[in-house]
Design a protein around this nucleic acid. Structure first.
Lengths: 192, 192
DNA sequence: TATGTATCTAAGCAATTGGTTAGATATGAA
DNA sequence: TTCATATCTAACCAATTGCTTAGATACATA
């Protein structure tokens, strides 16, 4: 009997994610969100309850986004060192492209919010656990394939590459492509 | 003839720096600043012109702060690999201490503001150039001392360690001490 | 000791913040 | 075709934002 929604929650959530990604949490106003999402404040609140809840949902949407568009190759069965290296170099190349790099939404959030909000911190930690798990598997596969030494300490190396990826997010905003490439090439070389 | 200031600009600037460091730029209100700085809004604006200018001055104050309290050893003549390693391990140890790590003010700023404000971006770049220059000198000294190979590519390695330090700032908020230690130990080992 | 001047207090400014609500509107089952 | 119900519009809310200002205050000089 009731009227049906005129928008798709998934679609407007993806738009919200992009607004937060571009501007950060605090600098994103609900007015800006309604413009970019294309729906009224009422609809934002009826679908997502609060700005903070919408932000948290944007982070989990981001996780889905990178899973499908950034890490898809790395997440495939059999992905090893070659794929990891390719991903890192592609991230460097992207820096040459138009506009300022937005970095990683979750790194930006960790830097901006830190641990001062428990719910947001939980979502951030969940994301990084997902990345670390991905790295562990990739490195294990790399050992199995003989791409890296069987003596490789998987735990140490996955912590290392997670740290490198966090650094890369910041560095992509502050380093030129040459320095970025130097950074990554040293990080990759050490495991060979 | 005129009345004299009842506060020291340097002192209140250091307090402002700490407020921005704890909360980030956007989340820091001028009301909070006046409370923490211990002076009235009028005095803030008469001494620092605007919130943004105060923030930029806080970043350069931060540079002075780390120069004297964080990197003092690394900046000494003759500092090499041992000092670099000591600094990194100390940064890891600090994570065990009370409260959530605030990370590096400038990394936080790079993540929050990115390149969307030119004046702030310039201050951020100046800071990272200072760090990179410090790293270059330390690595050169390390070569001279025979701590690392004379074939070491100073440019690549200084870009690498700058990236690692940027990662460390984020990681100190999201990793536990064990993972942090893994991250740093791999970063240091690769140069030996 | 008197006084000119910058400093300080505290109130105020318009604009924006996150969030709510009353009433108009559209929809899909009966 | 009716009608109950959820969706939508747009105005509204108090609180807070960065910043300004008029007038009271205190101090270095004369």
């Amino acid at each position: 009997m009731p009227r049906s929604k005129s928008y798709d929650e998934n679609t407007v959530l993806e738009r919200a994610m992009n607004v937060f990604w571009s501007n950060g949490y605090e600098a994103t106003s609900v007015r800006l969100l309604e413009k970019q999402m294309g729906i009224n404040q009422f609809s934002i609140y009826s679908s997502f309850s609060s700005k903070k809840k919408l932000f948290i949902k944007s982070i989990s949407k981001y996780r889905e986004h990178v899973r499908q568009n950034v890490y898809q190759t790395l997440l495939q069965e059999g992905a090893g060192m070659k794929e990891l290296e390719q991903y890192l170099l592609k991230a460097v190349q992207k820096k040459r492209e138009p506009g300022t790099s937005r970095g990683c939404l979750v790194v930006n959030t960790a830097a901006e919010i830190g641990g001062s909000d428990d719910e947001i911190a939980a979502e951030v930690n969940g994301y990084f656990n997902f990345i670390r798990e991905m790295l562990r598997k990739v490195l294990k596969t790399a050992v199995e394939k003989g791409e890296i030494s069987p003596d490789t300490d998987i735990e140490k190396q996955s912590a290392f590459f997670l740290g490198v990826m966090q650094g890369l997010s910041v560095a992509s905003k502050t380093m030129d492509p040459v320095q970025l490439n130097d950074f990554i090439s040293v990080a990759v070389k050490q495991i060979k």
